[in-house]
């Protein structure tokens, strides 16, 4: 769990390596999120529109980063802003690694915050998502 006093700019935090994405997971995510675009679940459809096969929901990858952030934050800090830009596509079999670097540690109106730069990669340098989260400490 993050401790405000122990954080410094440029610090790299311990990564999270997710198990490889599976097709079943994409079906589950479609059901849970309500995003039933067949591009994520129907191989025949995906091939029809020129893909090799199904691709993961971009929001699933953001979900991985969300999991990572909440693991780091525990119940000592709460996200106030969380954003992500989508990069390369994720396909079944891809193993996503989530990493974070401390961008800024600051106080505002008597509250303590940390801003983390986030990266989700399927291979080193193959970014599937990059973003930022602002955590407010209790």
């Amino acid at each position: 769990m993050l401790i405000y006093e122990g954080l410094y700019e440029g610090q790299k935090l311990k990564s999270l390596i997710k198990p490889a994405v599976t097709k079943v997971q994409l079906v589950k995510y479609a059901g849970a999120s309500g995003d039933f675009n067949p591009l994520h679940t129907d191989v025949a459809f995906a091939k029809e529109i020129g893909m090799q096969g199904v691709i993961a929901h971009g929001m699933l990858v953001m979900g991985f980063l969300g999991e990572y952030v909440m693991k780091l934050a525990g119940d000592t800090a709460m996200p106030s802003n969380f954003r992500m830009r989508f990069g390369a596509v994720t396909i079944p079999g891809d193993q996503i690694t989530c990493s974070a670097f401390v961008n800024n540690v600051y106080e505002e109106k008597g509250q303590r915050f940390v801003r983390l730069d986030l990266i989700a990669e399927k291979e080193p340098e193959q970014v599937v998502g990059s973003g930022q989260v602002v955590l407010q400490f209790q």
């Binding site: 589950k28 849970a32 999120s33 969300g66 999991e67 909440m70």
Partner: peptide, 13 residues
């Protein structure tokens, strides 16, 4: 629960 499970996020929160 369904949403957390789909992500594979077993955070007890």
């Amino acid at each position: 629960r369904q949403f957390a499970e789909a992500i594979g996020d077993l955070n007890p929160l």
